[in-house]
Write a protein that binds this DNA or RNA. Structure first.
Lengths: 263, 263
DNA sequence: GAGTGGTCTAGACCACTGT
DNA sequence: CAGTGGTCTAGACCACTCC
């Protein structure tokens, strides 16, 4: 004997997949569903919460339950690293023209709102292991948010770590007011003689924490985030930057091309 | 005035983050929490469902609510494409030794249980666009499941599409009983004279469908899946394979290294 | 069998949306 | 204001786990 809320969720799921109601359309009101399924309101609501957690339905207080319309994907590319490296030594005027984010998204500089904040942290065991430094070593933590001007929420949350004593050689690098730096991270590192040789990216996914949901505007529920962990290694084999990027799973697509050698 | 279930969830979340109770430990019973927070059982349960959806708590019927222990990550690599290509033309004995999955995970062939099933599909508008063929063109759909022998559930769900008339030149390629094919997909394509030149991978994330949760053993809730869409393009510029891979977001890490040219 | 979480009800009252 | 979803209760009964 199946549970009532599961049967209800199953039925509605099937109907939605069949296109009735279609994307963006409203479901019958909860009281209507009570009549139709002959179960109490809390049970109907339980079924709808299940569908919301799946990302199939979006609840809107006072308006109704709606079939979620799949979001337009923003293409994010990962071939940007070579592109960024090529720019790092270019003259200032050229670096000013376009940033890496614009390169990824195809938008122009004016469409984006950017913010940066710097902090000093002591290395946790995990970060110490990543950088190969003693626990407690002073790190520079940089928090970035980037937003489309027209939208209310940023499309990513970036936290970048650098070894403080490595970068403080150039005081401009520990000053958040110099952001956005023309040419990006690799250009910043170039000012202290660092050449990035290799970038390693690792991707996982999970539900957002409440804080992330808040910052990214995912209050609706039923949306996952991708966690991109990026390690930059210089020509001497040192880890020179470690970044964590939180991305909304439905609005973002990570793109990784691989070219193979010809036979 | 904040909602009761949110306050309760907040309080418990803070305590769990502070390590009390710690990973794997049991929370107080729901009736105990009713006493502590002075709210009714359904309200306490609502709060716990919220924490379960976040992946912070795992509900176990008849046992209790437990703090979820972060899973050990399985490393999956994406540099396998070149590796696989290099093997595709090697003699049979060598191809038999190790498969790509073993290369990715570092496990030996005996540890894995593999299954494959083939179907014939008509191209949907989306698939027709991917392959650049008319809608309704006959496709070969291949479903793969791979599982650790010691575990109950597969660690990925793979659906691969090929253009039927392109591959049926070699009847062995439309016969599921020939799987697992020594040397993998690229070796299969090599038998009909196809050389893969480029692989494009796109990653997104979302909550699992009930069917995916079922197949991957994610019934606990609060786990996201990654969707990896892989397009293989041959030296003539044709799309020769399109695959969708569903991976549990907490147990899987996608690894993408990038080497940069030296200055 | 004792203890635990899971499901469900009938109904009250609150909060938001749109007219 | 009417209509909609959101929260909450007090309590009944079921299902699973472990001793």
């Amino acid at each position: 004997m199946a549970k009532a809320y599961e049967k209800i969720a199953d039925t509605l799921r099937q109907e939605i997949r069949a296109g009735e109601p279609g994307p963006g359309e409203r479901l019958p009101s909860e009281t209507k569903l009570v009549e139709r399924f002959k179960f109490s309101l809390p049970t109907i609501q339980h079924a709808l919460r299940v569908l919301a957690a799946e990302g199939l339905v979006e609840k809107q207080h006072g308006r109704g339950n709606f079939v979620r319309r799949p979001r337009r994907l923003v293409l994010r590319t990962s071939e940007r690293h070579q592109w960024e490296k090529d720019r790092a030594r270019k003259p200032l005027e050229e670096r000013l023209e376009t940033g890496a984010t614009e390169h990824d998204t195809g938008l122009s500089v004016g469409d984006l709102v950017f913010s940066a904040a710097y902090f000093e942290d002591a290395a946790t065991p995990h970060l110490a292991a990543v950088f190969g430094v003693p626990e407690g070593t002073k790190l520079l933590r940089r928090e970035y948010r980037t937003r489309y001007q027209a939208e209310d929420f940023p499309f990513n949350l970036v936290t970048s770590y650098l070894v403080y004593d490595m970068v403080s050689v150039n005081p401009e690098l520990t000053d958040a007011s110099r952001e956005p730096w023309p040419g990006g991270s690799q250009s910043q590192l170039h000012t202290i003689g660092i050449e990035v040789d290799r970038v390693e990216e690792r991707v996982t996914a999970r539900p957002p924490t409440p804080e992330e949901a808040e910052e990214l505007g995912l209050s609706a529920g039923g949306i996952a985030v991708m966690v991109l962990r990026k390690t930059s290694i210089d020509t001497a084999g040192r880890v020179v930057d470690y970044s964590e990027v939180i991305l909304p799973g439905d609005r973002t697509e990570l793109y990784f091309p691989t070219s193979l050698t010809r036979w």
